[in-house]
Design a protein around this nucleic acid. Structure first.
Lengths: 410, 410
DNA sequence: CTACTTTTGTGGACGGATCGAACATATACT
DNA sequence: AGTATATGTTCGATCCGTCCACAAAAGTAG
């Protein structure tokens, strides 16, 4: 054993004892099987670098806690005694809620990243916090009986299109919903009777990509997602999501780029998200307006001069912004999602060339620019991760419900 | 004990055993006394949240390792048995080298942040890597006998004005020294026969401020230093210095600001460090050119219209850049050093007002903007920290020299 | 000056955690 | 069928921090 549990922090932390060791190892095993679902016990042993005996004991404890189970070994073309497969118990789940301008999406995600359910509730106008909660409670009630019978819901993860204070889930400002200082997480928590955690939608999507998408195994990652309105950002720094002091960090869409002239809803001139913008792209097209998900085919086949010029303008601005993020973060990968991913897919060489031209050369030489891979489950998995975190950190310390008991009696 | 050793990483790490616990606790105690030198044993007990007995054993081990010693209690107006003071052994030291355009500075820094020696060797022109090493070796030889007799040098920390690959200390690009892809750390290591670590000068200065200066206790910190030429940046993210994939992160001086027109040495237009620039400030003055350290008094007393206009222009640009960094990092504090600190000191209200005006309001509302406090020992302490890190992480695992044996025989 | 209170150092017993070795088991290969 | 290999299982050894009882050293009150 040469494991180093020492954090990378320069500052002194606090001491630790045997129970801390146990917690750490239990957490390590549960997290490992959660992020790589079908995995043999021997593989767990190799990954954790723990002793066979120890892993045996840890898995046994996780099974007793109802967090994992073992299945008979798969057929394998390998000598030696087969090792049972350790699975996380996907019935242990998190509710996921993503209120947005056009719709409220609700999901149920189990350990292992299994999306049990996903409901998209279309909205005719942007919801108030009250309405968002009502819709959420209705949707949960709709799946209520099954929820109580079959799943053990440990918490709620919210993905919010705006600034979210991570300490308590206050929505400090969500411009497109027009919410200001709404204690949304607190109200959701009360309405559903579950511990609730909230994050910015793009940051949460970055976590999804990092765990299950194009960002697997990448420790230093810059993620940009082009939504219908606005651009969201998420950053992974040394394997840790960047949150900042209050949780407001990685607002990459609200960095001023050099060629800005339009006023952003945040009050400033020339924000990235005002200059690089799906709606402006759509306005540049002649013909019927396209959907965000149809952009790929349109961009690759179009001969619309106006659209092509606007796309190129936006790519130039985007490249400049990316170059700045590269100077700031020195990432291994820059991941583009949403309509930014469509731009990258349609003009891959142009995007890369412009980024390299706009960069301080030595910084950009090893950066990979790629398209994000996840589509609809995008915010789901990452926000579920928010709700799973306490359990993953201390599997034996979190009281696990036998079943979801429904909202508290009124 | 409710210590959580779990890292904040979402990804699964590796397991840990009893030896890991011991290492962690030994590290915790040594780091604690290193960063808060005079500290009683009972205070260590409180801080680490370990048991009295355990701290006793740990301190004993550190003393046996020659890393700490205890002194009789100070007089205290407090009841109860007095607790001995635990000190880090400041004879355990790191050599620090900071090659720059005008001078090469060498220092000897002991545990506890004690600056034993500091030599500034003026240079008539920017040094080549070869010359920098020769000067360094000469200076070390100059203090050689005493070094061997009185100190136990465990390593070398380099502060470099440029891009440094943290993996191996390669100086990828140092524009003002005109070094490109120089394996400087490796050569220094061979020349002095000591393990050598290198970092960017501003990032290292950020570490100094964070441990001993205006950034004490701040976990999320953006630091900007205005050098004679250029602007360096350093960022603390959740208590961990931002390094990026290769160590090139936090090049905040090389982010493009919106009003740029001059070409930067990095090849781009409108970099922060070309727009906000000490030399341009000096050119705007009538009269004799001032030194970087005289700027404070000049700025506060001047009535020079050209200088005031230029200062205001630079503050406007700086504020815009800071606003972007706030959007990206959501820091608790923004620290300004060098001539940027002088600007802040001379025009505190203007700086703050412009930053707040340029920011996405909710993000800036809690940010403190302050001047950095450390002057000459600035890069020294932080680069020493680089060299101390292995020891602080694993106090029992690093072979400690009885004395510095001098450069290897030629 | 003395007895009391408070705080801290010290040493041994204890429980908990991982490890390593020996043994058992299950598979592939020959 | 026998052998080699890989892994699960069991149990004792080892290490670590904690807890407890006691000693030590200071201030405080009378």
């Amino acid at each position: 054993m040469s494991a180093s549990r020492a954090s990378r922090s320069l500052r002194a932390g606090i001491g630790s004892g045997n129970d801390g060791t146990r917690r750490h190892n239990l957490s390590t095993v549960l997290t490992t099987i959660h992020h790589h679902d079908p995995m043999s016990r021997s593989e767990v042993t190799r990954r954790t670098q723990l002793n066979r005996s120890t892993v045996g004991a840890l898995v046994t404890e996780l099974v007793e806690l109802g967090l994992a189970y073992e299945t008979p070994p798969e057929e394998q073309a390998q000598r030696g005694r087969p090792s049972p497969i350790v699975h996380p118990n996907s019935k242990v789940s998190a509710l996921v809620v993503n209120p947005d301008v056009e719709a409220l999406t609700l999901g149920l995600v189990g350990l292992g990243g299994v999306v049990h359910k996903r409901v998209r509730h279309a909205l005719d106008r942007k919801p108030s916090p009250r309405e968002a909660i009502d819709v959420t409670v209705d949707l949960v009630k709709g799946m209520g009986e099954e929820l109580e019978r079959d799943y053990r819901v440990i918490g709620v993860g919210l993905a919010i299109p705006g600034l979210v204070r991570n300490r308590d889930g206050l929505v400090r400002r969500a411009p497109y919903l027009d919410w200001t200082s709404e204690p949304f997480a607190e109200h959701v928590s009360r309405a559903l009777g579950l511990p609730t955690f909230a994050g910015n939608d793009a940051s949460v999507a970055m976590i999804s990509e990092s765990l299950y998408g194009a960002g697997r195994g990448v420790s230093n990652l810059v993620y940009l997602n082009g939504f219908l309105v606005g651009i969201g950002g998420g950053v992974m720094v040394a394997g840790v999501p960047l949150v900042g002091e209050d949780g407001y960090a990685a607002e990459l869409g609200h960095t001023v780029v050099s060629e800005g002239s339009l006023r952003c809803h945040c009050g400033r001139l020339g924000c990235l998200e005002t200059e690089v913008n799906f709606l402006r792209l759509r306005e540049a097209m002649s013909g019927d307006p396209v959907d965000l998900y149809d952009l790929d085919s349109v961009l690759t086949t179009t001969t619309d001069r106006g659209l092509l010029l606007e796309a190129e303008r936006q790519i130039n601005v985007l490249a400049e912004a990316i170059a700045n993020f590269i100077s700031v973060f020195n990432p291994e990968v820059v991941l583009l999602g949403g309509f930014l991913g469509s731009l990258e897919a349609a003009f891959p060489d142009l995007v890369r060339r412009k980024v390299y031209e706009s960069s301080f050369a030595p910084l950009a030489e090893n950066v990979r620019i790629e398209r994000a891979t996840l589509r609809t489950p995008l915010p789901l998995l990452g926000s579920a991760e928010l709700a799973f975190t306490p359990l993953l950190r201390d599997p034996a310390g979190v009281a696990l419900p036998l079943a979801y008991g429904g909202p508290p009696a009124a």
